[in-house]
Amino acid sequence: MLTNPEKKHLIASSVLFGILSVWLVLSSPVAAEYADVVLNKRAEKEGMRPVIFSHWFHRIRFRCKVCHSELAFKMRAGANEVTMADIIEGRFCGMCHNGEVAWSVENCDLCHSGKPGLESQIKGSHETGGPGIW
């Protein structure tokens, strides 16, 4: 259990974080495209840049249902345990990025294109205006 001062601390820091986020959204050059997703549970730990997945690019080519079915991605940022081994074997991004439906995964930097330090989350939504709530 949290003690009272700890709770205050927690609230104060969340408020600060909230205001900070507002400031960030309003004035920084961060203008990520709506619905871009950062995947960075493992990539940066292994020395690769974070992965950026663009909904806009893919939804021009596929309906949501193609990716959000049990074969592929749960509809929650960060909820999928994506590894490179699985991708190479043809799961997750690899169900298309296999040289048949789309280019294969040799070209690491097309996916691993994020700035260092990004957190796994969806961008451009009101959810990211403040700390994520799931």
């Binding site: 920084s28 203008a31 840049r49 930097d109 097309l110 294109s113 994020g114």
Partner: peptide, 15 residues
């Protein structure tokens, strides 16, 4: 220029 893609990576310019 979007603030999340790394402008120092060549791959970024292919997108």
């Amino acid at each position: 220029e979007d603030g999340i893609h790394d402008p120092t990576s060549e791959g970024t310019y292919l997108l």
